[in-house]
Amino acid sequence: MLNMIRERLRQGHRTGKFPRQEPSLPERFRGLPEVAANLTHPQINVAVNGCPFNALSEINGKMQIDLGRCIFCADCPAVAEGALSFSRDYRLAASHRDDLRYGDDIYRLADKLNERMLKLFGRSLKLRQVSAGGCNACEADLNVLGTLVYDLGRFGIQFVASPRHADGILVTGPVTENMKSALLDTYAAIPEPKLVIASGACAIGGGPFRDCAEVNNGIGELLPVDLYIPGCPPHPFTALDALLRLLGKR
């Protein structure tokens, strides 16, 4: 007992001050990409063709990036070309699939829920998590939200064991053919009204497994998505920021 108390004192108080205080992220962290201004057509062309996941495209002579496809590669060919750079901004969540595509304009972050949904879920949001082909990186960094550093519970958000107890579903993974029906069954078991959150590049658009024969390129065509959390995997602060934004707490 005394040992336990002594250890408790050594370990100290660790719950983070987020969201009152911004997190400090590593210098090499790759957050919100920034498209370089005044790119020439050949520069854009090289960058667009260099991305193995077709995250870049040229629209009206300007380069556009799709955060639903970008996996934030450290060896991004567009970064090497100077067409793109990664900032350390961890805030990445969006409400609409189209919002994930942007150029040199301002990236539109997720909106809060409408008034009715906020009234229902604003103070208590229970989520059922389903991994549908996720590699356990997304899952691991969602689990982290339950540790005392992030302490998800203090915001009234909790992952629950049954879809019947849930207000929404949070999906990770590209949706393998073998998980499709279990995912849809889980969604169907959640009482209305319900939310759908796509977390990670795989759930949004298939991630590194896009167009593989055994996957469905994410949940976009299967479920009505309310919140997109980009990243491969999303940093825990990215996910936490996303959930708080949804509930109008940021």
């Binding site: 090499r28 790759r30 450290a74 990186a137 960094d141 540790t147 550093v149």
Partner: peptide
């Protein structure tokens, strides 16, 4: 639970990703 995250953060110091991506 807390310590695990601190070790992941060391990997992130090295390559920007907590899971060693890149």
């Amino acid at each position: 639970g807390r310590l695990r995250g601190d070790y992941l953060n060391l990997t992130a110091e090295l390559c920007g990703s907590r899971f060693g991506r890149g």
